[in-house]
Amino acid sequence: MIIDSHQHFWNYEPLKHEWIDDSMSAIRKDFLPDDLKKVYAENDIDGCVAVQADQTLAETDFLLDLASKNDFIKGVVGWIDLRSDNLETDLEAYKEHERLKGFRHVVQGEADSNFLLRPNFLRGISILEKHNYVYDILVFPHQLGAVLEFVKQFPNQKFVIDHIAKPYIKDGFYDGWAILMREIGTYDNVYCKLSGMITEADFNTWTPTQIHPYMNLVLKAFGTKRTLFGSDWPVCLVAGNYKKVKELVTEFIAKMSSTEQAAIMGGNAIKFYNLK
């Protein structure tokens, strides 16, 4: 099975989705399951994991409702306030939702580069571990030092780094990102998504050759058993189309064994998110 480990849905609202700036005006509209079904049919994708784009419990409920009505949505990564004193109670309310696999916080938007290491956030992660939820790490490269310290503290918690930690491909930023990603990759409980890469390059002039060094580093650091294909649809549409995003990965891994290719393109997502 080919599983897209990272995509989004939304009913577009200018205030809620203010992060969609003028450079991304092409995605200032609704993106819902019927839109994605057509894309998946054209690109031979069997299922996906829907990831939060808004930091509210209403967003989690919205995604779970879509998943209940669309079988191809195999899992949901929602949002919950991991810093809340009521976290246990909030999690209890979701325990019947089998497709809720984990949570994410938009850490890249936090001014504090050590946000992940705040005591109340660490406490929240320890509670997630107890309830067997995974956690998606969304950060910029300057926050990777905190990520390293963060994952060290939870050797039994499953983590995945979204969008290869968003290196500034457009600016050629590599070395500092690479050093920390290699070190983070030594922790067996941390996975990484080959996603969100074309939007870190120049939207209009990127080439696969420009992105290959970053993909190569991720595969060396995390290996073929802890690397997941993800599209970041519909965000990817500002710099290309679904076919190009998929081919960027499939062509890069084409010389690997069929077992390794199958793992990256779906098997690892099924294992990481415990998809049915």
Rank of each mutant, 00 (worst) to 15 (best):
F121I: 13
K37T: 13
P155H: 08
L63V: 01
K243R: 13
H131G: 00
A41E: 14
S23H: 11
Q143H: 03
D90S: 12
Q153I: 03
Y135F: 15
K101I: 05
H97E: 15
V76W: 02
P167H: 05
K130P: 00
N274C: 09
Q261E: 10
D112V: 02
E260M: 08
V106H: 04
L138W: 07
D30K: 07
I3F: 04
P155Y: 04
T199Y: 04
E200D: 12
Q143K: 08
A93T: 11
L217R: 00
K220Y: 06
D65A: 14
H97Q: 15
N114D: 14
L87N: 03
W177K: 02
Y214I: 05
M181N: 00
T227C: 10
S257T: 15
V134S: 11
I211E: 06
E13C: 05
N274M: 01
K29Q: 14
V77I: 14
L217E: 15
K69A: 12
G185T: 10
L228I: 09
N268D: 09
V151G: 02
K243I: 04
G172L: 03
L117P: 07
G185R: 02
P155F: 03
L87I: 09
E98K: 15
L275S: 05
A269T: 10
K220A: 13
E260Y: 01
H8E: 13
S195Q: 09
H97S: 14
L144A: 03
P33Q: 00
G196W: 01
M181I: 13
P208L: 07
A262N: 14
